[in-house]
Design a protein around this nucleic acid. Structure first.
Lengths: 195, 195, 195, 195
DNA sequence: AATGAATGAGGATTCATTCAT
DNA sequence: AATGAATGAATCCTCATTCAT
């Protein structure tokens, strides 16, 4: 694939991402994407065969971008609570900007393809997703900052965030509301500390 | 509407519910529902005008059924922790049986109609959903069983459950996994108790 | 057919007439008529088999009513010009009230059935329609009031009126406009008179 | 739109015109037109969105063609009576060939859309239609050939022609019959001349 | 006589996908 | 590589008409 092709492909993915954020996955047609990009009706097939392929590529692109962001934002501190605060703040920032969230699209996609999906692999993914968090919490426990079962706590937070993300597609979550929840999470991690 | 019609309508809703549980909301066509029931192509329009109307009716039916179940299961005890356990057990039971969950369908429906929806009203609904829980937690706080901010804790649990429900469409949640989370929730409510 | 049936049938025709006046012929469905009357979906078939039959019956009913009106209004004068004025006034009155005109419906009906129609018979009808007029004009010619070729003049007036009727479905004809035309017609009949 | 597209569009309009002439407006379906042209079920939508749009385009096409014809046929003479004869002959020619008349279709279309139409604008159109005629008659009056009120006479002739056109959809008008009417019109214009 | 539930045919419309250019 | 015209499948939805009650 020529360099020009690569750039065009990336452009398509950028535009497609917006479409998926706005309409979810199932309602998006090839026509929608063709309209959003600068491609002809037939031209899109030179790059992708259907909306699933496009969506997968969008997710891949995002995953790469996020990975970089993630490590960079957090690693530069020793204090687990501080790391946790940064992490939660990052989440909060995203939750306050639901316009470009792919959460609904992602669930629609996964659910639509659930027959074809490897559940074991998905669980692995879930564990990975909580991996970052797990490390922070383990740090905290080792430091004596936190006193929880690290696995369970990390999963708990991941699930809560998922609940927030999915709710944000339908509700308007205020910053105040999110602050309360974030504080609650932190206070839970340190609960036994007072003794 | 004759009595027979009423029964047929209910039958349609039962069958439709299965379809929505299996395919979500957006992918369901009038034809799907027609095929699942014993109705002709045009016959369904005697009862409903489109899939949205059917889905709304399915949700209404569910809401009624759940309301009864809820009060009955929980009210017969004074101990807040016991009430909480019963509530969580009920949630666990549902989470282990994701085949007939409408969670994906519900989010697809809400998201697809989000332009037409009243966000303020939706937030009210959310608050109500946590209302039951809120009362249990307030009881617990008054009893001295729990020591949390009731509002925030109730919302936290609702969101976590939402996270579990939506995740269950894509992952297989083991009973063990759920038990850990449920215990974690309970332990959080009683955190300061040890002192 | 029982007396009650006869009355119901007439009631149906009355209501149907309004429907045809409003929608023309082709757009009217059995459902429209059923909705406009107090009859059940299937019940209408006890009286009529399709919209054509209903429309034909409506026209028959009208024809009867008009015939009575016509003779009654005009015959009581000897002066041809006065008769003519009365006739034209009656036409004017109808043209100013186009809401219950069946002209469009009639042409739609005739055109839709033109294959099945006997053209010769239709021409007879046309001649009949001008018959009344013809007699008045012949009177006038014999009196020396008018000086025209009676056949041609009568047909001319019938055609002009048809033009007015059909135009009135689409334009709003003012009373003033109609007065000018009516005067013009009259002046034509008497044209040679000045000599 | 490519040149080929333009030609195809014109081809569609030609074929559609025949369909409208035969069936009127309301009975014509997209399927009818698709069948009459060489287009697939969905293909027609590349050119037009519904039958109204097609019919409007057909009328536009006609209007252009007629405008040319009109001026060309008439302007080359000074004598108003001669101009009038040519004009009426042209009308006669069309009336004798009712197979490709769009009159019924036009009234069905106008009537069906009457709610959406601007009546004032329609009246303007009507006045314009009589404009050509009006000029001829004014010429004649100035020449001393005719002695009538030009406005009223022009409108009278337009309405008569409309009556003839609409009647021709249902009756077979003989050439003789038309000749009589045409002569009658002309004689009316010159009525006072004898003095 | 009368009802109205039910059926199925028919037409509208939108898209994924192909293909000639 | 790229275009966009064209096709045909799939769905939606409305009615005429039938039929059990």
């Amino acid at each position: 694939m020529s360099e020009k092709s690569v750039r065009k492909k990336e452009y398509i993915l950028e535009q497609a991402q917006k479409v998926f954020a706005q309409k979810g996955f199932k309602d998006v047609t090839m026509k929608d994407i063709v309209t959003a990009c600068n491609v002809s009706r037939g031209g899109i097939y030179l790059y992708f065969n259907d909306t699933s392929e496009i969506f997968e590529a969008v997710l891949d692109l995002r995953a790469k971008a996020e990975k970089n962001l993630f490590t960079e934002q957090i690693e530069n501190t020793r204090c687990a609570e501080e790391q946790m605060r940064r992490f939660l703040n990052e989440q909060k920032r995203e939750l306050l900007n639901p316009t470009d969230s792919l959460i609904i699209a992602t669930y629609e996609y996964l659910f639509a393809h659930s027959a074809a999906l490897n559940k074991a692999e998905m669980e692995d993914n879930f564990m990975h997703a909580s991996g970052q968090l797990l490390r922070i919490i383990q740090n905290g426990v080792e430091n004596g900052e936190f006193s929880v079962e690290p696995d369970v706590a990390a999963q708990n937070i991941v699930l809560l965030l998922e609940g927030l993300r999915i709710s944000s597609t339908v509700l308007t979550l205020s910053e105040e509301f999110l602050d309360h929840q974030m504080e609650y999470i932190l206070s839970q991690l340190t609960r036994g500390q007072s003794t």
